[in-house]
Amino acid sequence: MSTAAAGAIDHHHDPTTSTGIPNKKLLMWAFLASDCMFFGCLISTHLIYRLHPPPGVPAARDVFSIELTSFSTFILLMSSLMMALAVDAIQKGNVKSLRTSLLTTILFGSIFLGCQVYEFNNFVFEKHLTITNSILGSTFFTLTGTHGTHVAIGVLWLTLMYIRSFKPAGAEAARGTWLLLSFVHLVVFMATLGLSMYLVLHFARAAQAGGFGLHTCLHFGKVEYKAILGAIVGFLGVRWFALPRGPVDFDQRHAIDVEMMGLYWHFVDIVWIVIFTAVYLLEYIK
C-alpha cells in the first residue's frame, strides 16, 4: 500500500487477492473462455453447412471481395496495436497519450465496421446474397454479424472509457452536472461518428458510380451539405469537450479497467483472424 502512495503501481499483481491476479482481469479471462464457445459454435455451424451445401447455393468465391476484407482485417489488427499502446499509456499514468490511442482504436474499429456495412450492402444488393435466400447467407451474416456486434460493443466501450477519462478530480460535489455533460458528450461523439461513417460510405458509392474526380466531389458536397455541416459541427463539439479543464479523476488506478477492455478488444480481433481464415481464405484454396 505504501508503494501505491509513492506512485508506483504494480499492474500485474494485486496483493488483496489469493492468486495476486486482479479480480477484473480474471473475470475477463473467464468470460473470454465462454465467448470462445459462442464463436466456436457459430463457426462450426458455418463450416458444417459449407461442407454440406444444398443444391443451388451460391459459390462463396463469387460473392466475396477478398481485397476489401484483407484491408479491413489489416485495419483491425492495427487497432489492436493502438489498444496495446493505450493500456501502456495509462499504466504509466499518461492520460493524454491514452486518449490519443483510444481515439485511434475507435477510428480503426469504425473503419472495420464501415467496411462490414459496405460489404453487407454489396452482398445483399449487388450479389443478391441475403440472410434468407440461401443457407450460405444465413450462416455468413449471422457469424460475421455477431462478430461485428462484438466490435460495435467494443467501440462503444472504448468511447465510454474515453469520455470517462475527462471526469474532473473532486467531482463528488458536482456529480450531477458532470453526468449530464458526459451524456451530451456521448451523444455528440456517437452522432459525429455515425455521420462520418454515413458520409464516407456514401462518398464511396458516389465515387464508384461517377469516378473519383472534382465533379463527383462537388456534386456530393451539394447533395450531402447538411450531413457534412453536421459532421463538422460534431467534430468541433468533440474537440471542445476535449479542451483541458484542470486535473482529472483518471490515472494509473484505472489501468485495470482499460486493460480489461483491451483483453476484450484483442480477443475480438483474434476471433476475426479465425473467421477471416475459416470463412474467407479457405475459399481460395486450389
Partner: peptide, 16 residues
C-alpha cells in the same frame, strides 16, 4: 428473420 439454419427446404439440417 427467416434464416435457414433449420429450414430443410433450403439446406438446413435439424440434426445440427
Amino acid at each position: 428473420f427467416g434464416t435457414n439454419f433449420f429450414e430443410v427446404s433450403n439446406g438446413g439440417m435439424p440434426i445440427l
